[in-house]
Write a protein that binds this DNA or RNA. Structure first.
Length: 764
RNA sequence: GCCCGGGUGGUGGAAUUGGCAGACACGAUGGACUCAAAAUCCAUUGACCGCAAGGUCAUGAGAGUUCGACUCUCUCCCCGGGCACCA
């Protein structure tokens, strides 16, 4: 018997699968249900780390299992190829970002192949391909048509290091998620997607999808619905009134002053001359501050009095109007009624500026009274911001819009798509907030689609999250030149059956993808309005030191080393075995030998001479357990069940049929090893075309069961009895036990509790 | 501050959802094989008491419900994640 040599058999079978096109999946197979098994596609950073494997290998186990269960399983893969790192690397090395990106894709493909996953490479997607981003641009046009893509003057997050605007979702603790620079707020004209118009639909949709509850909660919090009212505070001797948003109209009797955000449009109108100097002074100060401290420093309240007053519509009292930057311009109406008796922040402000604090007798009727009088109306507010998609960078899909002096903004007509990203010489971003494309006159100069006069192209590119917000649709029909996806193929494959990926995308990609799906649904392009019927997260793999893997820390685990040493099957199975899939955890370089030893033992076991012996019971139990565990993505216990099974059968000589059953149970985990052993047993076709073994529930039932005997809740003995015995019979057997006799001798039995086929508890 | 997760041997984790806590592994210790080492195989491995049979304690801490709690309830402590001046 030759030794188990993973590197030899793995490359051999990978070649075999490729030659047989085993994983090129047809859109329809008679009598088979389609199953869309999706993983989050990688960014082509250049190397695949253990975290990618942890996403892809167990997801592949799941897909292979589904296939053996009789589904037509599609497991596509591709590359999220646009984005900043390519550009930064290109600037550094004076390369075309395209060259850098495609070089990385090439080496990552080799690494992805080494996983031995059932990826359907015939459906590969690269988002930086004109053939792909043509349709990203098309989707932009659909949003534009629906009034959901607009150029707006918005207060936006500007990263001075990356020299681009970022979406709210890409800012972490006031810093750029990519480079950690503190972002500044800039008022700029940007293309936005009106995701806030979909806030309610995005909330409602969560009810009907099979997602982890934690992820749903995270999205709900991110959308941040709050129900309240707009209340009008009139300014004496003026047509102006100040609208405030509050969730607690019932506290209005305690409202002793109003506060406007410094950016509020009424500030200039209401301020009294004698306060003008002070107010301007404060506005100057906060304007500078907003760029840094306002987001970071929260503790100390600041503000200034406008000199103006307004009527509290409930009390008819005149209350002072203040300005403070603790009121945010983009939430609610940018103005609040301050109720210091009920709100910590209002109290801090009142204390600082010696404003009255008045206990408010709560009044539940006040809202309806005020609304009858025209002072109040219901209002729902969302924390969610619109999605700013303009990026002042080069390596992305150009926004397909044209600015004409006469006609204003005009969409590029569909027949002119794609707007190709031109080759340029200088990719450097500018501090002025202009895209590198702005330097290319050749790109900019164009004709107005409406009046055919001279016009200029938009030079910003799209946020890469737009690219990834619809890629899962394209996998169904990746080559289509006429449509983004044909209706027929959409029907075959979508929505996605199961989506497996990290939770870090919960409030970004997963939200955007749902939004785009809903928009396309509402424009009648999709027959469903939630893209991912079922979603599961894998945990995060940390470096051996317990920290997040990063190059700067030097704790990145390179899977290639382990492929060489143990083979891909061992890594796959070890990743499954490590612990609960959603937990992740530190990579322990030593622990992997456990699975390697196991696979070596499987090798020896399957190489033994078969006999006629069969062990029905343990096999049927294992078939049940392994199948149920994979179905529930409990890969760790599925693997331990396989180990237990081998422990029991290893020293026996079993019938060929049972050895084959064992290999089939192992096949999703160790596709190469099992394929090799399967063929060694004389089979000609791939084991991965085999059916998943079935179990007979009758054979699992134990005829003899263990009954645990407790005295006062402590286990004292255990007896083996025929199953399904009546309590009277059990009582007889229990009381006959020598051990139990000792415990109960001379004492009275208070209660005798019998749990059917399981346990007896005698209470003395 | 608010909202989620989680806390079980030296380590990763298991526990049929209220019924023998520690499955399956890693590591460690001892032994076999070997000139030797690696690999492999065998044995032991939660803590404490005991020569042993056996017993006591033990799932972050404390209380409660229950015949019985890792599992349910309450209070508190610690760790991880999300949001954060959102009215």
């Amino acid at each position: 018997m030759p030794k188990y040599n993973p590197s030899k058999i793995e490359s051999k079978w990978q070649r075999f699968w490729k030659a047989k096109k085993l994983y090129f999946i047809k859109d329809k197979i008679k009598d088979k249900q389609n199953f869309y098994n999706l993983v989050m596609f990688p960014y082509p950073s250049g190397d695949l780390h253990m975290g990618h494997w942890y996403n892809y290998a167990p997801a592949d186990v799941y897909g292979r299992f589904k296939r053996m269960q009789g589904f037509n399983v599609m497991s596509p893969i591709g590359f999220d190829a646009f984005g900043l790192p390519a550009e930064n690397a290109a600037i550094k090395n004076k390369l075309d970002p395209k060259v850098w990106t495609y070089g990385n894709i090439k080496s990552m493909k080799r690494q992805l192949d080494s996983i031995g996953a059932a990826f359907d490479w015939s459906r590969e997607i690269i988002t930086a391909e004109p053939n792909y981003y043509k349709w990203t641009q098309w989707i932009f046009l659909k949003l534009y048509e629906a009034g959901l893509a607009k150029k707006e003057k918005v207060l936006a997050n500007w990263c001075s290091h990356c020299k681009t605007i970022l979406a709210n979702e890409q800012v972490q603790d006031g810093r750029c998620e990519r480079c950690d620079t503190v972002v500044e707020q800039k008022l700029l004209e940007q293309w936005v997607f009106k995701i806030t118009d979909y806030a309610q639909k995005l909330l409602d949709g969560l009810e009907k999808i099979d997602w982890p509850e934690t992820t749903k909660i995270l999205q709900r919090n991110w959308i941040g619905r709050s129900d309240g009212a707009i209340i009008k505070f009139q300014i004496p001797n003026s047509k102006d009134s100040i609208d405030v948003f509050t969730t607690r109209p019932d506290t209005i009797f305690g409202a002793t002053f109003l506060v406007l955000a410094p950016e509020h449009e009424l500030v200039k109108r209401v301020v009294k001359d004698e306060q003008l100097g002070q107010v301007n002074n404060y506005l100057e100060k906060t304007k500078k501050k907003t760029e840094l401290e306002r987001l970071v420093e929260v503790k100390e309240k600041t503000g200034v009095f406008t000199g103006a007053y307004a009527f509290n519509p409930a009390t008819k009292e005149k209350i002072p109007v203040w300005i403070s930057d603790f009121v945010l311009p983009h939430y609610g109406t940018g103005a609040i009624m301050a109720v210091p008796a009920h709100d910590q922040r209002d109290l801090e402000f009142a204390e600082k500026f010696n404003l009255p604090v008045k206990e408010a007798g709560l009044d539940n009727e006040i809202f309806s009274r005020l609304s009858k009088e025209g002072f109040a109306e219901r209002k729902i507010n969302y924390r969610l911001h619109d999605w700013i998609i303009s990026r002042q960078r080069y390596w992305g899909a150009p926004i397909p819009m044209i600015l004409c002096q006469k006609c204003g903004w005009q969409p590029v007509s569909e027949k002119d798509l794609p707007v190709l990203l031109p080759k340029i010489n200088d990719y450097k971003p500018s501090s002025s907030g202009q895209s590198p494309l702005a330097k290319s006159e050749k790109f900019i100069k164009t004709k107005c689609p409406k009046c055919f006069g001279e016009a200029r192209r938009e030079t910003d590119t799209m946020d890469t999250f737009v690219d990834s917000a619809w890629y899962f649709l394209r996998y169904a029909d990746p080559q289509n030149k006429k449509e983004f996806v044909s209706k027929e193929k959409l029907k075959s494959w979508l929505p996605v059956s199961i989506y497996i990926g990290g939770q870090e995308h919960a409030a970004k990609h997963l939200l955007y993808a749902r939004f785009i799906t809903k928009v396309l649904h509402d424009s009648d392009y999709l027959h469903f309005d939630e893209p991912f019927s079922s979603l599961r997260h894998q945990g995060l793999i940390l470096g051996p030191d317990g920290n997040k893997m990063s190059k700067s820390r030097g704790n990145v685990v390179n899977p290639d080393d382990y492929v060489k040493k143990y083979g891909s099957d061992t890594i796959r199975m070890h990743l499954c075995f490590m612990g609960p899939y959603e937990n992740g955890g530190p990579w322990d370089p030593k622990a992997i030998v456990g699975v390697y030893r196991f696979l070596n033992r499987v090798w020896s076991f399957a190489n033994k001479k078969p006999s006629n012996e069969k062990l029905e019971k343990i096999f049927h139990k294992a078939i049940k357990k392994v199948g149920e565990d994979i179905k529930n993505l409990r890969f760790n216990t599925a693997v331990s069940e396989l180990m237990k099974l081998l422990n029991e059968i290893e020293d026996k000589e079993l019938a060929k049929e049972q050895i084959e059953t064992f290999l089939k149970l192992m096949a999703p985990f160790a596709p190469h090893l099992t394929e090799e052993l399967w063929h060694q047993l004389g089979n000609k076709k791939s084991i991965h075309l085999e059916k998943w073994p079935e179990y007979d529930p009758k054979l699992i039932k134990e005829e003899i069961v263990d009954i645990i005997i407790q005295i006062n809740g402590k286990a004292r003995d255990i007896i083996k009895v025929q199953r399904d015995l009546k309590e009277s019979k059990i009582r007889e057997l229990v009381l006959a036990s020598e051990k139990i006799k000792i415990y109960i001798s001379g004492k009275e039995i208070n209660r005798f509790i019998y749990i059917f086929n399981k346990l007896v508890n005698i209470v003395l």
